[in-house]
Amino acid sequence: MGTMGLALPWEARISSAPRERGTRVEPFQHFSGGTSPAAGDATDEDATLAAACQSGDLRAYERLYVLHGARMKNVARNLLGSPMDAEDAVQDTFLKIQRGVASFRGQSSFVTWTYRILINTCYDARRSRLRKKEIANDDSGETPRPELRAPGAHPSLRMALERALAALTRHQRDVFLLYEVEGFRHAEIAGMLEITETASKNTLFQAKKNLRQMLEPPRSSGAEAR
């Protein structure tokens, strides 16, 4: 991919603003490139990227891929359970962006819009996979099939988490993945899932509470309420 090192005028950094809580690990430093540009710059860059995609400039799509391809693929893999399905979903997403970019009017950020398309694409893929009965021996019919992941990942913890995530509601799973795994802010997640920021925070709280129950039930509640 030739443009990797090219300084193009746009740099859509969706997660450039500091996260709400300093205690969390910031997962996307390598995408945001260290320094935090002003929010206005990020907005301008997002608009530039959108305009370039609207003009049919393939370099803009490539730029979008360079900035977000890996994260998009990871979101898709966590929703679909398979790296191959994830790659298909990312490709479909780019095609849908190309088909629909003319109608993008900037109601949300362009990058947020692309992730909304990605998430919907993943759920469409899951539904069509269900229809084709490709998920064998799956009692819930909604559980992603975990496959090979990053080398070095802790297999038992990962699998336990995947199983627990599959038992959450769709929204809880989406918000948990987008916030805790991908490092998006609640404002961004709200735009992607078309919910309010408060709903995103509440859904994350419920998701983590449920996961905590499933993965590590509280040992006792005797020492509570001081």
Partner: peptide, 29 residues
Amino acid sequence: AWRTLSVAAQELRDYSESPALWARIERAL
């Protein structure tokens, strides 16, 4: 326990390269 969940979530992150993916997407576009 709350923080452990955030740490465990890192296990679900894999940003490894897919060398042929962009070429495939570009062709399709």
